[in-house]
Design a protein around this nucleic acid. Structure first.
Lengths: 106, 106
DNA sequence: ACTTACCGTAAGCCTTAGCTTACGATTTGT
DNA sequence: ACAAATCGTAAGCTAAGGCTTACGGTAAGT
């Protein structure tokens, strides 16, 4: 159940900020941390969590390490929400149906 | 930005368990709490958080209160993930393209 | 009217987790 | 070989949040 790690990782605002910074493409740690409110080690720790959750890929590039969003990890979470969405709609439809049948004018 | 509240609400395992119990349809608090590891007040607090996040609807039904999943709230989160997914794929394609052009055999 | 059932809220405890500073490892440049 | 740059990790502090017990409030049943 990888979507659990993904959703728990994305629950943190700092980690969502990191994700937003990587929307345009992969970046090294220094570039990610630049201009952020927290320290660079803090960013490193968050990158670790995001990587473990399968949301980021790491590419050692000489001296630096390039972090980029992993589409597969995002997709796992999408699948979970799609299933939840389907069930919610079905339950809603059933409730509306029962309401229409049983309590029309009684 | 309602998706923020939604994702932070779903980050808790107990709250995800509650959501799972509501997949089949709306339930009163007692039925939700029954068989769960935590106390009923704890469930009540979680229901409050989920409602505030727009993930649940509340329907006072005489003595009880019926909680059900709100499809709209789930959809907000889906929209956020869809956008993230799109950006991630586009960035991935650009990176692969740059890789192919610049470093083919050099 | 009184009792029972259902539920929300307040107070308090305690664990979790994010942040900082300090340090070590590896790589690049001179 | 030496110096500088990039990054991960450990230790420690602190704030946030989830849980329990206790209580109050409203609706239903007798």
């Amino acid at each position: 159940m990888s979507y659990v790690d993904a959703i728990e990782a994305l629950a943190d605002p700092t980690r969502r900020q990191i994700i937003d910074r990587l929307r345009g493409g992969g970046l090294p740690v220094g570039a990610i941390a630049e201009g952020m409110a927290v320290s660079r080690p803090a960013v490193s720790q968050h990158l670790r969590v995001l990587s473990d959750a399968g949301l980021l890929t790491v590419t050692p590039l000489g001296n630096k390490r390039l972090y980029a969003i992993a589409p597969d990890g995002v997709d796992d979470l999408r699948a979970y929400l799609d299933g939840l969405w389907d069930d919610a709609l079905a339950a809603f439809a059933r409730a509306a149906d029962a309401q229409a049948k049983g309590k029309t004018h009684d």
